[in-house]
């Protein structure tokens, strides 16, 4: 009986040690993952901002104006309006 008790105590002790080691390693792994995700979120946020700014830039009137100039969509394509509306109406 005494031998069995001793064995049980050792078993419990070993289990506790194993659980402790597991919890320690698991917490380190979790910390690593938290750290990884924190950095990931930060990077994503910064990339989002960068992309958002690029979208705003290409959507801007300034960009449209520069593209229009590059594509020669300026004087030649300037609409003739208002003063000549009566011609349009009469046709």
């Amino acid at each position: 009986m005494k031998h069995l008790t001793k064995l049980s105590i050792w078993a419990v002790f070993l289990i506790l040690v194993a659980v402790n080691i597991y919890v320690f390693l698991h917490s380190i792994s979790l910390s690593d993952r938290i750290n990884h995700f924190e950095k990931g979120i930060k990077n994503l946020h910064q990339e989002n901002l960068t992309l958002e700014n690029k979208i705003f830039e290409v959507n801007s009137l300034q960009y449209a104006t520069s593209m229009a100039a590059q594509l020669d969509f300026t004087q030649k394509a300037q609409p003739v309006y208002l003063e000549n509306l009566k011609y349009a109406r009469s046709q």
Partner: peptide
């Protein structure tokens, strides 16, 4: 945080 900047969960 530990020395490597990882969060100490406890």
């Amino acid at each position: 945080r530990d020395l490597l900047g990882r969060p100490i969960l406890i």
